[in-house]
């Protein structure tokens, strides 16, 4: 029962960034360049949710709080949700009527190629996130879902690549991801 309540609270909490953005854009003040803000913020929240999702397992190990695993799927799906908003806002708002630019962008711009690949890789993970799929895939499910590390790497790379001069913000994400991957690698190599 308490888990159910926590889940509802968490669900709503994860919606807050999207709600704040909607409010600012449609009701309040979205700032001078609303489209850039929407695209940037949905992208940043995708990265944040990816990293939060990847934090669950190590956090669970250190804290011994096994219940955490019950929230991982929702957090992962939220990463996908924000990734979809990010992609959709780039496509529908930023490119607007200049759709022809999309194809050249995907082919010619490395950071868009990388970002698009990351989004594409998230799709099978979202599809196989159900209990039924977990059962059906068995051991392979875990192997498949290790892709989330690769996706996070692509996500950080996507951000690093588009920045003009100040790398500090994407480097923070890169550092967090590096720590998470180090923890992961130590565990995997420790087993062997």
């Amino acid at each position: 029962m308490r888990i159910a309540v926590t889940k509802v609270v968490l669900f709503l909490l994860c919606l807050v960034p999207a709600a704040v953005l909607c409010w600012d854009v449609f009701v309040g003040d979205p700032g001078p360049d609303p489209v850039a803000r929407i695209v940037h913020e949905t992208g940043a929240w995708t990265l944040r949710f990816l990293l939060i999702t990847l934090t669950i397992t190590p956090l669970r190990r250190f804290s011994g709080w096994n219940l955490l695993i019950r929230f991982r799927r929702m957090l992962g799906l939220y990463a996908f949700f924000y990734a979809c908003l990010h992609f959709a806002s780039y496509l529908l708002l930023d490119l607007g009527a200049f759709w022809a630019q999309l194809l050249t962008d995907i082919v010619k711009r490395p950071y868009i190629t990388v970002g698009f690949s990351a989004w594409l890789l998230l799709v099978p993970l979202a599809i196989t996130s159900t209990n039924a799929m977990m059962r059906r895939l068995g051991k392979r499910w875990q192997t498949l879902h290790r892709l989330s590390y690769l996706i996070a790497v692509l996500g950080v790379l996507h951000f690093l690549w588009l920045v003009k001069a100040d790398l500090s913000e994407p480097l923070i994400y890169a550092a967090i991801l590096a720590v998470l991957m180090l923890l992961r690698w130590r565990r995997l190599s420790g087993r062997n």
Partner: peptide, 17 residues
Amino acid sequence: RWSQASERRIAEGMSIF
């Protein structure tokens, strides 16, 4: 790293679409 074929105009009353 990006196209220069078009631009986002920041002006009053611009629709986000």
